[in-house]
Amino acid sequence: MSEWIEIGALTEIPKLGSRIVQTPTGDIALFRTSANAVFAVRDRCPHKQGPLSQGMVHGNTVTCPLHSWEIDLTSGGALPPDEGCTHTYATRVEKGMVMINLKVS
């Protein structure tokens, strides 16, 4: 069975913005960067579980809206000097549609 799930059109995510995918085990935040790369991470900041999807995206980084931790979207890790990590999920864009693989990468 394919583990890839189609989520929706890339255009449904604003540039430098985010949308949420709801799952039975918690929200996943989908981000679209200015270069049209799409990243998926668990929507919980490693600091105090802030919703990363509500943060500001710049480069491949999102700033948590609660206490401004910066999370690297490629690895899910907090940028130093902060320490911590959130799960990331593999994504790909096919014919304008965003796909996600819910196995933790």
Binding site: I20, Q22, T23, P24, G26, Y89, L102
Partner: peptide, 11 residues
């Protein structure tokens, strides 16, 4: 709103 709701559990 969420872009999609899926029923697969993410781990």
């Amino acid at each position: 709103s969420p872009i999609k709701m899926v029923d697969t559990a993410s781990n």
